[in-house]
């Protein structure tokens, strides 16, 4: 009898967790749907959007650029070491290019921006929630979803592909620098191999991933900040949850998108 009760409690605990996860997913989906609906309905806030483009896009360039540069360099060394086992050192330019453009550029860029932007958005909006600034916006006839959330998500979604494109170029240049100064490749041959090997699908699949990751980064920051609990602890928790959930979602979506693009 006691064993049955324990099994019952165990199943109930699993059930509660599943219901909790479903409810959380539902809340995020509804939040995202409302945010998207506000992106396409006036009034629009272009000044706020441009402000977020600067903050999310422009000021993230150094972080994404440095990440791509060192990743490209390290990738060239690793591929050279691996390729040498099969006498295939010449594949370094091609694999660095495809690795950066299809995978590492968007994923590492997304994770770095998640750390920088998701946390910042969640902390800012959480503080606005706690200090009643979001309520104040409502009393001033301004919809917070339209004024705060929509411009951030739109800016991140549009800026991430540009950031990742710049990061891809810097990453390939990092591989090129290591290739010619450390691995004795010819500079012109390296670049020619890169250009010859890359196909349009490699580039646009990476940029589509970047746009999705940008959306996730801003959505998680806004959602957790907007629904932040009270006090400093609530804002701290919102910030942590934003970064963790954005990072996990980026990795999960990366796999799903890679599967999608795998056959192409």
């Amino acid at each position: 009898m006691q064993a049955l009760t324990q099994i019952d409690n165990f199943l109930a605990a699993i059930g509660r967790s599943v219901i909790g996860i479903c409810a959380a997913v539902g809340r995020v989906v509804i939040f995202a749907a409302i945010a998207i609906s506000h992106m396409v309905r006036p009034p629009f806030y272009p000044v706020e959007f441009l402000h977020q483009v600067m903050r999310i896009g422009y000021y993230s360039l150094p972080v994404v650029g440095m990440t791509a540069l060192f990743t490209g360099g390290a990738l060239a060394l690793q591929i050279y070491a691996g390729g040498a086992r099969f006498n295939a050192e010449s594949v370094v330019p091609a694999i660095v290019a495809i690795g950066m453009v299809r995978e590492l550029g968007p994923v590492l860029g997304g994770l770095m921006v998640a750390g920088r932007v998701s946390s910042s958005i969640a902390a800012e909006m959480g503080t606005m929630r706690v200090t009643e600034q979001i309520d104040a916006l409502t009393t001033l006839s301004t919809n917070p979803m339209k004024y705060l959330v929509a411009p951030r998500i739109l800016a991140a979604t549009l800026c991430m592909p540009i950031l990742v494109a710049v990061g891809d170029v810097i990453g390939i240049m990092g591989g090129w620098a290591v290739g010619i100064y450390r691995l004795n490749f010819s500079g012109a041959t390296y670049i020619q191999n890169t250009i010859d090997f890359l196909q349009p699908i490699d580039i646009w699949s990476g940029l589509v991933k970047a746009a999705v990751f940008g959306f996730i980064v801003a959505l998680m920051g806004c959602y957790h900040g907007y629904s932040s609990g009270r006090g400093a602890q609530g804002v701290g928790r919102a910030t942590t949850n934003a970064v963790v959930s954005a990072s996990v979602l980026i990795l999960a979506c990366n796999y799903a998108l890679t599967e999608l693009f795998f056959s192409t």
């Binding site: 503080t127 200090t131 009643e132 104040a136 409502t138 009393t139 001033l140 006839s141």
Partner: peptide, 26 residues
């Protein structure tokens, strides 16, 4: 909402905007 004005407990001023833009927000 245009019929209402509200003074919040902590002021609830927008940190990112200068004072005049806070006052003239609506």
């Amino acid at each position: 909402l245009s019929r209402f004005g509200m003074l919040f407990q902590g002021g609830a001023l927008f940190d990112s905007l200068p004072v005049w833009q806070n006052v003239a927000f609506r």
